[in-house]
Write a protein that binds this DNA or RNA. Structure first.
Lengths: 136, 136
DNA sequence: CTGCAAACTATAATCTCTCTAAACAACGTC
DNA sequence: GACGTTGTTTAGAGAGATTATAGTTTGCAG
C-alpha cells in the first residue's frame, strides 16, 4: 500500500504533512476518529502540524474519497477510514463505533424516490447500550 | 390535541413560553427544524423568547419524548416532531428531509451485539439526489 | 534555477450550543 | 390572597468545533 501513490491517484499532491497524516490514519486498522484526535495522534508521533492543516487535510481526504464522514452527533465530525459500503453500531455508553461489514445488513422496503432522484447512500446506525433500568 | 395536557403528561410545567413553542412545532404537520429556525419562527409569530430558552425547551422536549433529535450533519441538530419509529430520506440538493413511515423499511442481518447490550434505536438515512454527471 | 500555484501556519473569526447568575413565575400551603 | 419553594426565563459570557484570512513556505513545471 503506497500512500504517496494513493494520494496522487486521488488528485492530491503528496506532501510530507499529508503523507504523515495518511500514515497515521491508514495503518491497516479501520478507525473512527475526530479531528482533535488526529491532531493529538500527530503530536504524539512528533509531527509538528497545525490544527488548521489537520482540518484541511481531513476535508481534502473526504472530498477525494479517502475518508468517509460519519454523522454521529452534532458535537463534532468523525472520520471513518473504511470507505467501503458498510454500516455502524454505536455503543452509546462507551462512545465507541463498531463496523458492520458491507452486505451483512439488508435494508428492504425503500419507498419510491422523488422524480429524477437516485440513492447516493443508505446509512444505518444501530445505537446500542445496556438496558435502561427506568424502562424495565 | 391539548398541548398543555401533553406537556404535563410529559412531566413538564405548562408555561406560556413552552406552550407557544409547542404550538409552533405541533401544528399538525410533521416537521424537521433546527434550533435557529424555531427561534426565527417564534420571532415571526411575535413571540419574545430568548435563544437560551429555545435551546432549553427543545432539549426538554427531546428528554420528555416529545421531539426526536436527528443527526443529519455535524453543523447543527435537527428536531423531528414525529417521535414514532420511522426513517428518513434526505434530499441533499434541496436539504430536505422526507419521512419514511415506520414499518415500511425492514433492516435484517444485524450482527450479534456486545455482551449485555440491547438495541436502543436503528436509524436509517437514505441520502438521495440527482445522478452525479461526473460519475456517469 | 525561477516562477507560480498550492500548501501550511498562526491567529482571528464564526457558529452552535451551554453555563451562569439573577429576575421572574407557577403552584401548593396556609 | 400572601408566602415560600422550586422550576423557568433571560442576557450575556463562555466553550468547543470548525472555517476564514493573510502571510510564509514548499512542490513542481518549464
Amino acid at each position: 500500500m503506497d500512500l504517496a501513490a494513493k494520494l496522487q491517484a486521488a488528485g492530491l499532491r503528496s506532501t510530507p504533512k499529508r503523507l504523515a497524516i495518511a500514515r497515521l490514519l491508514f495503518d491497516g486498522e479501520d478507525m473512527h476518529v475526530a479531528a482533535d484526535a488526529v491532531a493529538r495522534m500527530a503530536a504524539q508521533a512528533g509531527l509538528r502540524v497545525s490544527l488548521a492543516t489537520v482540518y484541511n487535510t481531513l476535508n481534502q481526504f473526504v472530498a477525494a474519497g479517502l475518508l468517509r464522514r460519519v454523522n454521529l452527533d452534532s458535537e463534532r465530525s468523525y472520520f471513518d477510514t473504511n470507505t467501503a459500503s458498510h454500516q455502524h453500531i454505536y455503543v452509546e455508553d462507551e462512545q465507541r463505533l463498531i463496523d458492520i461489514p458491507g452486505g451483512q445488513i439488508r435494508v428492504s422496503g425503500l419507498p419510491a424516490l422523488p422524480e429524477g432522484m437516485e440513492v447516493r447512500a443508505v446509512e444505518v446506525m444501530v445505537r446500542v447500550g445496556a438496558p435502561k433500568p427506568t424502562q424495565g
